[in-house]
């Protein structure tokens, strides 16, 4: 068995993209990092036999949210070159700890054997209908909830982005 199969490669890609998202120098880079993370996760979700959720993750998280962030960033003022230089010096001090934390924690998890205590006796698998019909047949209340929250979001857009007499 080779270590580098497609699943492990995906995990590594996702991990790198996530770290890049946090450490990325500009907001735009962070947003792109988030989109890449999201795309990689959607492939992982696909590999976990959940195609419908993968499509949603890809189209909504990688697509729509990135669009929201990019438009938000483009509406705000970019920093001047000097500010970027100053900020990046300052940033390194704050962000350098993330890889350190991750490495220490990874080592700790690899050596401390806490895993046997964490195994849950999972219930036996039941024969499952498809997600489409399940969402409608068993979780109609959640669909109703989605409708309500989208409505609330629509009010929010009207409130936050709508035309407004300036006071």
């Amino acid at each position: 068995m080779t270590i580098i199969n497609i699943d492990n490669a995906l995990l590594i890609v996702t991990a790198i993209a996530a770290i890049w998202t946090v450490m990325g120098r500009s907001l735009l880079k962070a947003t792109i990092g988030l989109a890449v993370t999201s795309a990689a996760i959607s492939v992982i979700i696909f590999r976990l036999e959940s195609p419908l959720a993968a499509v949603f993750e890809l189209s909504v998280c990688a697509g729509l949210i990135t669009a929201v962030f990019v438009s938000a960033i483009s509406l705000t003022k970019p920093l001047t070159h000097k500010e970027i230089l100053y900020a990046s010096k300052d940033r390194m001090k704050r962000y350098i700890y993330l890889p350190v934390i991750l490495l220490v924690l990874g080592a700790a998890l690899a050596f401390v054997k806490i895993w046997p205590g964490l195994v849950i006796a999972a219930p036996a698998a039941a024969s499952q209908p498809e997600a489409r019909s399940l969402l409608w047949d068993f979780r109609r209340l959640d669909i109703l909830g989605q409708v309500i929250i989208l409505l609330a979001g629509a009010f929010g857009i009207v409130l936050l982005f709508g035309e407004k007499k300036n006071k």
Partner: peptide
Amino acid sequence: MTGRTATAQSLAITIIIIEVVVAATAAG
């Protein structure tokens, strides 16, 4: 892991939809 991918997908889709609304509100 539990062989309930259909339920899990339903939950995940709901989470994704809700988080879009939260992210849009936060960005606003």
